[in-house]
């Protein structure tokens, strides 16, 4: 479903991502791990079109999406979240969700003015959808609060659900458990598994080892922008290169 070959990105002569190739099969959850600064988020920014790559090719659903602008890629069904959540702070939780769908009627200038009835009907449908999703995400009670007033963990969840509202085929989650309190991590896991059952594919960046190893069917390990290992979670955990990469930064011990 998503296939990346030879992806390379330089920042001022420094290779942040170096000849990276990876593949995500439809209906799977794939993890992307690596020590801090290994270039994981850059990979996300490249795939989702926010950065332009210096070399390489990104294929999604059999189409070449290299160099397309972010909104076009998102409209094809590849939607990402951010490491530091980016909810719309001055809009309510409910508005955050209903603004998201890509087929919203009335987001064009003309139909917003001319077709009030179609807009109304569509908004009713989207509103119900959003409320259902809010119940699913245990955010229903907070639907009329401004997003900025939610605790960080709930903002993270809101951001995830906002992305779900766009009906993505694949979601790129950038550290879905960062800053999330421990009991909510388990919930996040449940949400992701349920969404997977609904047919969404996932590529997940995560530092929380137990979380990502438990979810993923396949894991890629990045260090200094290079792919150093890949395999099933248990294979990767035993890989000496991976252990070394993490030992070098003292992260694996803390993470496991």
């Amino acid at each position: 479903m998503l296939k990346v070959t030879g992806l390379t990105k330089e920042f001022g002569g420094l290779r942040a991502v170096d000849d990276l190739s990876l593949e995500v099969k439809e209906g799977t959850i794939v993890g992307l791990i690596g020590p801090n600064g290994s270039g994981k988020s850059t990979v996300f920014n490249l795939i989702s079109g926010f950065y332009r790559c210096d070399a390489g090719r990104i294929e999604f659903s059999g189409k070449d999406i290299t160099g397309l602008p972010p909104h076009v890629i998102a409209r094809m069904g590849l939607v990402r979240t951010f490491q530091q959540t980016r909810v719309f702070p001055e809009m309510t939780v409910f508005e955050n969700l209903v603004v998201a769908p890509q087929d919203n009627v009335g987001e064009g200038f003309i139909d917003s003015l001319l077709f009030p009835r179609a807009v109304k009907e569509d908004q009713k449908k989207k509103g119900e959808e959003a409320l259902a999703l809010l119940r699913f995400a245990d955010l229903y009670e907070k639907r009329d609060e401004l997003a900025k007033n939610l605790p960080y963990g709930e903002q993270k969840r809101l951001e995830l659900m906002r992305a779900v509202m766009t009906r993505p085929k694949i979601m790129l989650l950038d550290e879905p458990t960062a800053g999330v309190a421990r009991p909510q991590v388990e919930k996040m896991r449940e949400y992701i598994l349920k969404l997977k059952d609904q047919g969404i594919t996932f590529l997940i960046i995560e530092h929380h080892m137990k979380f990502v190893m438990g979810l993923s069917e396949w894991v890629y390990v990045l260090d200094h922008g290079q792919l150093i290992a890949q395999g099933t979670p248990s294979e990767v955990q035993k890989n000496p290169k991976v252990i070394e990469a993490y030992l070098g930064t003292g992260r694996m011990a803390a993470a496991v």
Binding site: V79, F82, P89, M91, V99, E107, L113
Partner: peptide
């Protein structure tokens, strides 16, 4: 009419965070 419509809501989302709006597929 414009600002109360989905178009207006999209405008506000862009004002709040244009990167996030683009990530959802808004032009």
């Amino acid at each position: 009419r414009l600002v109360k419509s989905p178009f207006g809501r999209m405008l506000r989302s862009i004002r709040e965070d244009d990167v996030a709006a683009a990530s959802l597929g808004k032009n």
